[in-house]
Write a protein that binds this DNA or RNA. Structure first.
Lengths: 116, 116
DNA sequence: TCAATATTTCGATAATACTGGAAATATGGA
DNA sequence: TCCATATTTCCAGTATTATCGAAATATTGA
């Protein structure tokens, strides 16, 4: 258990995604799957200057939703699916709740989780 | 059908949520449920100056994830659960994909949807 | 060791976002 | 109509984020 699911990490993941180029990069990485993509490939596909892309990649890394690994001369980025799932779980618990939800029951649960 | 689910709207919903105070406001509105909350109540609960809160509320409104309605002297804000569900659907389709996903099949589907 | 490749870091600039007091707007009640 | 309440809009100041060329750093292969 002990899923962290704190607002703090959700927030940094959200800010990582909340930018045109970064959302595009992340979607590309999701499509690429576990193999990931080299920074250069991303730059080419999205037609972004290397230094700008690097700025955004480091933001995605900070947000905890991509992983990095050097592979020879290239640096491979991959989507962190586990982190993305945690973000989804956070949003589901804290930001969703159909009109058919069991009143404030769920919110009490979440505020308890948040306290720690 | 014709779910919009475009990157553009996902992006504005994401930027709406990707800010400490706005995420807090939205969570509060989710807890409040369909009844919503008056701006003043939100300001009090989160201890935010009225003008700052108003700035953030308009951002949430722009992002399409809250609804507004005047009720006497107060202005009631409520979480737009349908919009939130659309965001979740977008993220699920475009930003998730377990390692057990059917290769690039899903991504082809989504790029077709995006074209329009 | 040297040159070529891949990427990041630096630094300067521009653009955007956030903050909060004060003034403006809308509403309801006396 | 006049006053109190609720909220927004305006505005200026501050802070954060984005952009991208140039220089710096790694890595590989000759």
């Amino acid at each position: 258990m002990e899923k962290y699911r704190k607002s703090e990490s959700a927030l940094s993941a959200l800010s990582a995604l909340a930018q045109e180029h970064r959302l595009a990069v992340f979607r590309l990485l999701v499509q690429a799957g576990p193999e990931g993509l080299a920074a250069g490939d991303i730059a080419e596909k999205l037609d972004l200057p290397a230094s700008s892309l690097s700025f955004h990649l480091s933001h995605l890394k900070q947000g905890g939703i991509v992983g990095v690994e050097r592979q020879g001369r290239s640096i491979i980025y991959r989507a962190d699916f586990a982190a993305m799932n945690e973000l989804m779980a956070y949003l589901l618990e804290n930001c969703c709740a159909g009109s058919d939800r069991p009143s404030p029951a769920l919110s009490e649960f979440e505020s308890k989780g948040e306290a720690a």
